[in-house]
Design a protein around this nucleic acid. Structure first.
Lengths: 140, 140
DNA sequence: GTGGAGTCTGCAAGTATTCGCAGTTACGAT
DNA sequence: ATCGTAACTGCGAATACTTGCAGACTCCAC
């Protein structure tokens, strides 16, 4: 696994350690092919290492987020989900009627990002964004 | 106050009642000129009517939201704020460095909304949206 | 190998919000 | 007037997450 070497150096460079807990959180995220919630990560970690605390999972997620190893998507109503950063960015259209989630290519919001930068000098973090509304099937 | 007559009929039309609690929640939102949190609404309501419960405030907010009397903006990290619907829609650029909130005109996202509808058949609810990133002063 | 500084973790308490329940209240029908 | 149904409320518990604290571990210098 060259990922973990890469990861170790990334952590070391900033004075952090690669603990078993952190490895397991990261591997849980890598294993899941779509977005995963903190609870689900916790469940997976506990399965292989029972004495970990949920707050450690949250703290690890925050750290990985800061290091740009995972990105977080707020799907509203307190449901936050995580995704490995190296699997590409994308956005979500969340239907508030049927709960369906439509993936949106990274490029769709690029022009918005440019405009915000031009007009407001604002560097928008458009890695993962959720936009709420109603999908084609739920209108009327 | 012709608002409350309007409100009463709006509620009645769907089988709801206009209770003192609901009036106070709505008036607290109307009084505040910018966005207000649920806690702040609760504090104002309790000041004039001490035996109201915080969960009633949340339930009322949900109802008013459904009736399009207030809109809600999720400023991330569980901080949700409310705003009367009749005072116009707008969006927010939230600086994650200094916490500054820049207001964005309603029109800036109109073209995005159109595009989502054209390409995905998705009716985006772009009444209040928060976009995270870094403001001009906090870059570098 | 000893000591110290700093990181990391588990625990328990706190925050913001939601939910189920049971009692109260209002309104329409009789 | 009174009865039934449905809305509404307060309460307390649950959820999802965050935070402060104290102890444990690691790395580095000596």
């Amino acid at each position: 696994m060259k990922e973990s070497i890469d990861l170790t150096s990334k952590l070391m460079a900033q004075g952090y350690r690669l603990t078993p807990q952190r490895m397991m959180v990261l591997s849980a995220i890598q294993k899941s092919d779509n977005h995963i919630s903190a609870e689900e990560i916790y469940a997976q970690v506990v399965a292989g290492y029972p004495c970990v605390n949920i707050s450690t999972v949250y703290r690890t997620l925050e750290l990985l987020k800061r290091l740009d190893l995972v990105t977080e998507t707020d799907l509203g109503g307190g449901r936050v989900r995580y995704h490995p950063a190296d699997k590409g960015h994308h956005h979500h259209l969340v239907c508030q009627e049927c709960g369906r989630i439509i993936d949106l290519g990274e490029t769709v919001l690029a022009s918005l990002g440019n405009r915000l930068h031009r007009e407001y000098g604002f560097r928008a973090d458009l890695k993962h964004l959720a936009i709420f509304g109603r999908c084609a099937d739920c209108q009327g």
